[in-house]
Design a protein around this nucleic acid. Structure first.
Lengths: 130, 130
DNA sequence: CTTAGCGTACTAGAAGCGTGTGACACTCCG
DNA sequence: CGGAGTGTCACACGCTTCTAGTACGCTAAG
């Protein structure tokens, strides 16, 4: 389904789960009222301990994305879409910001940095204003 | 001087030291034959343990950027400039690549991603801070 | 030779992560 | 009611990584 976990990544597994759920809701894959997979199901599917999944779900609940329905599952909240849109932008933006700040502080020329960025995104459309 | 360490960062301190030395040499701040600050001096200045600095120096030696001169210090190698230029591009490129890949997989539109990038690089158009 | 500074090696502590186990309260359905 | 499924909690264990503490051997200068 919609999970792509990298156990060898320096980013903790539970953190990866959090992000992917957020991204999935933001992209419209899950709507308010839906139940996300249970800790045991998801744990089995990702070959991860249910406790690890539960840790991710706890974080999602803290963010207000889901609410625990004891005995039923984790339900996507009405505000989830809005929250996830913000979260997605914030998380992605932070990563990009850090990478670009490091690039600038490394002494690389703006030209070089722009080239590196273009290598990844350049295909999608032509040219930005300058 | 030329170090800017963030102890709270998820990136280990020794790794930050490695990068900053590489960036500094790549930018021409240190030339072949120069001695970089000693583990104790640098440790005192950054308020980290000399061993942490030594770990960073060991990595730099493994990369061929410096050679240990027992009893004297760590000396910048003749090839350091070339190696550091490559390393800088590789390290910066990797960070940018990862950030942009995550951005794409999050479902953000190419438009949005471009906007986020512009927010960081837009100001330095045609001109680099230095 | 003595001394001070250098890098190095070994060891120990601390923190984070993932796993494992067991138990509990709740809800749904037969 | 009873069983199966759900989230939750507490505890412990092993593992890895990072950092700190300490001591040692080397080199250059006096």
């Amino acid at each position: 389904m919609w999970f792509n976990i990298h156990p060898e990544s320096p980013i903790p597994i539970f953190e990866q789960i959090v992000s992917q759920v957020i991204f999935n809701i933001a992209a419209g894959g899950l709507a308010a009222g839906d139940l996300i997979p249970s800790v045991r199901d998801l744990g089995r599917e990702l070959t991860v301990h249910p406790n690890t999944v539960a840790k991710a779900f706890g974080e999602l609940e803290r963010l207000g994305v889901v609410t625990a329905r004891r005995g039923r599952g984790m339900e996507v909240t009405p505000d989830a879409a809005k929250i996830c849109h913000l979260q997605r932008r914030e998380r992605v933006g932070k990563r990009i910001r850090e990478a670009l700040r490091e690039a600038v502080s490394s002494g690389l020329s703006a030209e070089e940095i722009r080239r590196l960025v273009e290598e990844e995104t350049g295909r999608s459309n032509g040219r930005r204003r300058e």
